[in-house]
């Protein structure tokens, strides 16, 4: 299977080109480039947009908010997930609250977020935090509570104390699950930031899309969507790479 990665990369490229081809064909059939821009015109638009300082500022503003909210959600979700996973009595208190808050989509929090934090960075960071926290917490909790009992028994019979069981058994064995939570959380966080910016910010990719919608510049709207998609996919790749580094025993 030496040629496997080459084969895989080839099919990745083919699949993306296939999507672009279908898009191009559809826009040619529709034949109204104002309402349904083609990939070529979006590509040209993107080159132009990235030469503007404004657009780069918007991209950086969104990224900054995602990173801040995701970072907070990661720290709180992982630590709360571990603590409630270990302490059953605490989980009886925390779990019902989480289960009630989790179904509320981040978008529904927007009015409250704006009332609480005004316009700007804070409400967006808050929404990213809300979007990312729940999947991170749930997957961490799941990982910690589903550790194979054999490992705990083995550790006890090798003389481990509770502290060593937590640090050397519970946490490392939950890492694959924690990472799934982080990946899902980052995805949801990235979606949440765009939603927040469409309503309550004066910068960012969401704000840019909203502005161009009002100006009926669909070409720029779609360019913004493409930027969001590509950056989201890159963030995901980045996290995958970090996961492989941090979890070298998990080769699946």
């Amino acid at each position: 299977m030496l040629n496997f990665p080459i084969k895989r990369n080839f099919s990745y490229a083919a699949s993306i080109f296939g999507l672009l081809f279908v898009w191009q064909a559809a826009s040619m059939v529709y034949h109204n480039y104002e309402l349904f821009p083609s990939p070529v015109s979006v590509f040209l638009q993107l080159i132009q947009l990235f030469s503007y300082q404004n657009y780069i500022t918007d991209v950086i503003a969104s990224l900054k908010r995602v990173v801040a909210g995701f970072f907070l959600a990661g720290i709180m979700g992982v630590s709360l997930g571990i603590i409630t996973g270990i302490n059953r009595r605490l989980s009886y208190i925390v779990k019902p609250i989480i289960e009630l808050l989790r179904p509320i989509p981040p978008i529904a929090w927007i009015p409250i977020a704006i009332l609480l934090f005004g316009l700007g960075d804070l409400p967006a960071i808050f929404l990213v935090f809300l979007g990312a926290f729940f999947p991170i917490f749930s997957n961490t909790y799941l990982g910690v509570t589903h550790v194979d009992g054999r490992y705990i028994k083995a550790a006890y019979s090798l003389g481990a104390t509770m502290k060593e069981i937590v640090l050397h058994v519970l946490i490392p064995s939950s890492l694959p699950s924690i990472f799934i939570g982080l990946k899902v959380g980052l995805g949801v966080g990235w979606m949440a930031v765009i939603a927040a910016e469409m309503v309550g910010a004066q910068s960012g990719l969401g704000y840019s899309i909203q502005m161009n919608r009002l100006l009926l510049d669909i070409n720029k709207v779609v360019s913004g969507m493409v930027t969001i998609g590509v950056i989201g996919a890159l963030l995901n790749l980045l996290l995958d790479g970090a996961g492989r580094k941090l979890i070298p025993w998990n080769r699946t």
């Binding site: 083995a154 550790a155 006890y156 019979s157 090798l158 003389g159 481990a160 058994v169 490392p172 998990n250």
Partner: peptide, 30 residues
Amino acid sequence: PSYLRTVVFQDDALFPWKTVKDNIGFGLRC
């Protein structure tokens, strides 16, 4: 349970996240 009576299980129960030498070293660290 105590390290004075340590158990070797049927399905090894090695910690998958530790290398061979860290598995062997775990009890020593404890």
